Amino acid sequence: MNPKATPGALQAQVAGSSFYAGMRVLPKAEREAMYAIYAFCRAVDDIADDQVGDRASRAAALEIWRDDIDSLYAGGPPGQAALVAQAVSRFELARADFHAVIDGMAMDVVGDIRWPPAATLDLYCDRVASAVGRLSVRVFGMEEAPGLALAHHLGRALQLTNILRDIDEDAAIGRVYLPWEPIVAAGIAITVPLEVIADPRIDDVARTVARQAQAHYAEAQAILATRPRGHLIAPRLMAAAYAKVLARMSAEGWRAPRRRVRVSKLALLWTVLRLSLTR
């Protein structure tokens, strides 16, 4: 077995993330499958965010991942995709969802995303976040209809929250994921990323996105409130924790200078305990 694909190695990759607290309470098979999905996402995300490699080499690296995923599903040598092979087999994960994640990362490689139209932003969120959710709900053992709905709404809620949290970090590498329409409606001149996000009217734009995220959190919570079948502490944890991050950002606003709001690991552990007692 590839030493990077062993359960211990995969766990080590996840241990520093905010998702770890929710994953570690899953049963062993589900936990290891989620570690593998996370490791895949981390690998392709690192390619997309590589600020050293040229775009052609990064695009080629993503295509190698796509080819390896295809080979895995065809029964051939899985290459790098060996790390998700067991999860794919055990939980019947869909190849299309792995492809969607790669497609989302490719959007960042083709050219730095700047003030995309709302439809393009929604497509990006579906690929880099909701597709991961679709893989995850299979592992959680959810039925198809509530699982797909939860992946749709919670994935978008989490990704929009990350976009609002990372405005300054993204602009520093030439990206602005805030959508075109509210930027134009606010009267902000489209110049360069650092100038756009420095405009005080960016707060109005961010609040528009925040309302969209809040609506998706509400839909996700409504699905979870029906107590669908599955191991749902992880999505309940992420919904609770990141909704609080969004609330804190909304209270502070998005006018520069902004303070990056972080997920408290202590708060995550407390939320895991609370959810474990109330499920």
Rank of each mutant, 00 (worst) to 15 (best):
V176D: 01
I190T: 10
A157Q: 10
A157W: 04
I190K: 15
A171F: 06
P193N: 04
D170E: 13
H152Y: 06
L178N: 03
V196Q: 04
E181T: 10
A172L: 14
D166L: 11
A186F: 06
T191P: 00
I173F: 01
G174K: 05
V176G: 01
I188R: 01
R156I: 09
P193T: 06
V192A: 14
L164C: 02
Y177T: 07
G187R: 12
P182I: 13
R156D: 06
V184G: 03
Q159P: 11
L154Q: 01
V176T: 07
A151C: 08
I163C: 08
A189R: 14
L160S: 09
G155T: 07
L194T: 15
Q159R: 12
T191G: 00
A189T: 11
V192K: 11
P193S: 09
L178G: 01
A157S: 12
V184Y: 07
L164P: 02
A186M: 11
N162Y: 09
R165S: 06
L150H: 08
Q159S: 05
I173Y: 03
R175F: 09
A171M: 08
W180E: 12
V184C: 11
E195W: 00
L160Y: 12
A189Y: 00
A157E: 06
A186S: 15
Y177K: 13
Q159W: 09
P193Q: 07
H153W: 02
E181W: 05
A172M: 09
I163F: 13
V176K: 03
N162T: 10
V184A: 15
R165Y: 08
N162I: 08
